[in-house]
Design a protein around this nucleic acid. Structure first.
Length: 414
RNA sequence: GCUCCCUUCGUCUAGCGGUCUAGGACGCGGCCCUCUCAAGGCUGAAACACGGGUUCGAUUCCCGUAGGGAGCGCCA
């Protein structure tokens, strides 16, 4: 049995999470949702893993609302996310950071990068870029025509892939603006040659060609920061040591690392979690029913039940199926995370939840159950006493609070 | 299309070259317990995607194929 403190050698070939000597370095993780919709189940799991990892190492778990998209961010979504986090008892150690409030700091960093020559002013417009992509698509389509020669075809394809390749701006090496007052963005000057490798805590070593990284926009023409700049600056300023997020961000890591490098900042340790799919194997969407995390609360699941189920989705510790919160904190590790996507299985969630309903302390269960009883008209002040008394022997009568409430119908409360 | 990633029972997974006639869990079938239901106990069916290597030996390592996923924005 390895000592529990041995968290630095989960997988061969993995970069150590900590320099041997820096035991004083404190683990900081964060969950960074964008308030453009509800907190879905995949996000809840990401938050859980970040929370668990931080707690296990005696570190800090932070929450940052990524609201730099002013068009799509809403206060309602922010409130919904906070509500879900609170329900799940995934409480951040510091007050949530609203990313947009830090826009000034982000711009400051972008300008610093321009001064250092690792970013530049770019005068290309979104329309020009779109035209470039459209032309690329056109050429590709043209290459499919049947009445052209092989030579023409490959020439067309070559043009298409050049047009569709990651964008490298004509201004990346400087140059005068078309006119004195031409609006400009600030773009990262992407690394020139060779390849880039990142040691991911879940995916292992992942390598891509530098040419796959584009000169991404850091500051929009209106001076506001993009997500790519904001995450890096905030993660650095918040002293985040471990970035644990969905693997839809894996490629972004390669676009973010050059920003850390440009500023001479320490690069955090990255771990990218596989996505969660619906029970039909397709990407999670509305038709999979309960999408928002708080819907599970309304469906009668206990927060600890949902968390225990989510924990086992993509993570395992031998054959153990049920983990108490204390065990989860103690046993969680990056090495136990699976690389392949998982499907949501409501049947199993029900079983896990049933376990936690049985484990639930009676007084608390009674409080949680009351609204569900009221919803089906089975609660009254007079019946409260009887319900409370019957509850201990009723605990195994349902997998959810909804079912449990239904089971009280026999009491003839009315 | 290009790049990267993934692939063990229906589902979640164990497995990190011999322990695998592949283990656990959910679900499913049967039996027991029980006035009924639930819970519980026992039990059964159910998987290494395919093809090549490497090796004395592959579920485990490598390469293809197929299937799936992600990314390719002045979105995050």
């Amino acid at each position: 049995m390895p000592p529990p403190s041995c968290f630095c050698t989960p997988t061969a070939g993995l970069a150590p999470f900590f320099p041997e000597s820096a035991h004083a370095m404190r683990v900081v993780t964060r969950f960074a949702p964008s308030p453009t919709g509800m907190l879905h189940i995949g996000g809840a799991r990401t938050a859980l893993f970040n929370y668990l990892f931080a707690k296990k190492h005696g570190g800090k778990f932070l929450l940052r609302i990524e609201d730099t998209d002013r068009e799509r961010s809403t206060p309602e979504a922010t409130a919904a996310i906070l509500d879900a986090m609170e329900w799940l008892q995934l409480t951040p150690d510091d007050p949530p950071v609203m990313q947009f409030s830090r826009a000034g700091r982000h711009a400051e960093v972008a300008h610093e990068m321009v001064a250092r020559g690792t970013a530049f002013r770019c005068y290309v417009t979104p329309e020009e870029l779109q035209a470039r992509r459209d032309l690329g698509e056109e050429k590709r389509l043209a290459a499919r025509a049947e009445n052209i020669s092989e030579n023409e075809k490959s020439a067309l394809l070559a043009e298409a892939s050049a047009l569709l390749a990651p964008f490298r701006s004509p201004w990346r090496d400087g140059g005068a603006p078309p006119a004195a007052d031409t609006p400009h963005t600030v773009r990262l000057r992407a690394p020139d040659g060779g390849e880039q490798t990142v040691e991911d805590g879940v995916q292992g070593a992942v390598t891509i060609q530098s040419s796959e990284i584009d000169d991404l926009v850091l500051l929009r023409a209106d001076g506001t920061p993009t997500y790519m700049l904001a995450v890096v600056v905030d993660d650095h300023d918040m002293a985040v040591t471990h970035v644990i997020r969905g693997d839809d961000h894996l490629r972004n890591t390669f676009r973010q690392i050059p920003i850390y490098t440009a500023m001479g900042w320490d690069i955090p340790h990255f771990s990218h979690l596989p996505m969660i799919h619906g029970n039909d194997g397709a990407k999670l969407s509305k038709r999979h029913g309960a999408l928002s995390t708080t819907v599970y609360r309304d469906l009668g699941y206990l927060p600890e039940g949902l968390k225990a189920y989510l924990l086992r989705l993509g993570w395992s510790h031998g054959d153990q199926e049920i983990f108490t919160e204390e065990e989860a904190v103690r046993l969680f590790d990056l090495g136990g995370i699976n690389k392949s996507p998982a499907r949501l299985d409501l049947e199993k969630l029900g079983t896990v939840n049933a376990h936690f309903i049985r484990e639930c302390e009676t007084e608390r269960l009674f409080k949680l159950l009351t609204p569900f009883l009221e919803a089906v008209g089975l609660f009254s002040a007079e019946a409260a006493e009887r319900i409370l008394k019957a509850l201990p022997s009723m605990k195994d009568r349902g997998a959810t609070l909804v079912e449990l409430a239904e089971a009280f119908r026999f009491l003839g409360v009315k």
